[in-house]
Design a protein around this nucleic acid. Sequence first.
DNA 1: GGGGCGCATGGTAACGTCAACATGGCACCT
DNA 2: AGGTGCCATGTTGACGTTACCATGCGCCCC
Lengths: 343, 343
Amino acid sequence: MQKRVSMADVAQHAGVSGQTVSRVVNNSPRVDPATRARVERAMATLGYRPHRAARALRTGRTHTIGLVVSTLATVGNSRMLQAVADAAASRGFALTVVTLGGSDDVSAAFERLVEQGVDGAIVLNEATAAARGARIPPGLHLVVVDSLPDDRFVGVQTDHAGGARAAVEHLLQLGHEEVWHVAGPRGSFAAEQRESAWRDVLVSAGATVPNVLRGDWSAASGAAAGVELAKAGATAVFCANDQMALGVLRALAEAGREVPDDVAVVGFDDVADAAQYRPPLTTVRQNFDVLGERAVAMLVHSIDGTGHTREEHDREEHDRDEHDRAGRVATTLVVRQSTRVGR
Amino acid sequence: MQKRVSMADVAQHAGVSGQTVSRVVNNSPRVDPATRARVERAMATLGYRPHRAARALRTGRTHTIGLVVSTLATVGNSRMLQAVADAAASRGFALTVVTLGGSDDVSAAFERLVEQGVDGAIVLNEATAAARGARIPPGLHLVVVDSLPDDRFVGVQTDHAGGARAAVEHLLQLGHEEVWHVAGPRGSFAAEQRESAWRDVLVSAGATVPNVLRGDWSAASGAAAGVELAKAGATAVFCANDQMALGVLRALAEAGREVPDDVAVVGFDDVADAAQYRPPLTTVRQNFDVLGERAVAMLVHSIDGTGHTREEHDREEHDRDEHDRAGRVATTLVVRQSTRVGR
DNA sequence: GGGGCGCATGGTAACGTCAACATGGCACCT
DNA sequence: AGGTGCCATGTTGACGTTACCATGCGCCCC
């Protein structure tokens, strides 16, 4: 059980002061190249690892970010978590996850994160409605994903409206005159965006706007909506996410309605399983990786203040190609067999 | 921008020494009730929060655990993450997530976790094969989920064999004489357990044992297997997870084989969506929450050494009712419409 | 040629907490 | 009455790191 290797050990081994070791570790320019090499050799030999807790105590930065998410039961949230985890890791930040557990108490989640000493946090869409009223602990940097703009925090969004528009226009182009919508839960920004884009497209196309059916993102709620759709004789449906579309597909099948021959169905997200639904689902693909990367980039930027490495700058430059000017991450319509030209 | 409230502030406000505040915070019995009350009032007034980094520096424990997972793309892994996150939170531990990103390099993941100063880590099944050869940093407590027993770490498992047995026996009782199997990837302990239980049941029932089809847990790989199943004229299939079953269902449908009339299909996990597959999937339900809770309990126990609060003891007592004596977490067969009595 | 400046490096203190030891008071015993 | 021991509380220093200031050296310029 060997003792932990500290800076002092490295300093002694390299014949310099601890301060110089610190400068090497932190890439300070004020170090002679020869000295730097000697210190680096000593670090390698001894297997030195900086002590995060000590550094955190001294600097007040833990290099840890938190992720607040209402649940990981929806596939979209899981995908975001993965994207955020990878983006954080690539910047040397640890990620700690806090779920709301159905309590809607974002303030409590913030408290817990602060207690765990995170430098900042990313809040996923489901939690944003609650976040709106939440007390934000002073000094907690925040990036909110898929929320209304707010002057209390910055945000990152997918272009929900653009994606929904593409979906509905696709259905209209297929000759459908009425497009139903299975929306996400009230209070979800993403759900609201998709819903109002759906409505806008129908209105400006002069099409009739059916009543909205509302689910809670789950496949079961989609099935309930599907029963209504069959009853109403819907011929085209845009679902606010893939999982609800799965439920819709099953309910329609049980009611004896064929997809895509009797009813066309479009989803949102392009979850991995969507290509294996029956039939394979036409859906709007979200770029979760870019979204997560951007959220982390913004958060880290905000934490670091003005600190701006060349590498980061390039990364941001590069990202900007992949989403539109307003900062919304672009989507792609993926056409599969749940919609078909020439019904 | 007010300064952080430290122990010294509380001490001064309450008219005691810092040490006494420390004792109150840590529930030391050697504090006069009146003094304790006074200190607690001062803490509440000032909004004191212990500084984790300082505590970690002093004690060497960060109260943070890591989770190593190969990917979050499989729904089972996401469910486990949620269960682990909640269990950790209820014990006051933070959870930091590390994904392998397809690299299979568990040693590197361990290094990163150690660098982030975790007290211990939980490794999910996909990563265990790789973990077998990995260098375990000294002092890193480890709990491995769904792995072969090993003397280098302790483990927690679902009763995969029992679940698979129930699934296959269910199919045999339905009158099927041949049951096919779509297995998980080589090197996965869970996949191996399910596969060999499937084989054992068939052998001891005197049934023929078809060739194993192998997937990678994804729905797409399930669809590929489904094509083979249709070609071979299979009438009963046990899939090693629900997502592969989804692919099988679609492939069978495309080949014109009806489920459950022509083919009976059983899955594993009972993912939230399984009840909305077409048809709703008969499957083996895993109790992820108990599994996660147990993994965290074991890890924390190992970290704390002999430390054993009364509350923890009760919790373990209670858990023991929900899984079998050997410590494997029990499963439940959930019969839905993808299998039907009296074909 | 002396004053000043830039650069590499070192010394010191402090971040907030807790373990170890020290202290002082009071009750109980002989 | 003096001693013994327990209990509540205080004092001191250290965990590993970095910010701030100090030092010493060589070089340039008027």
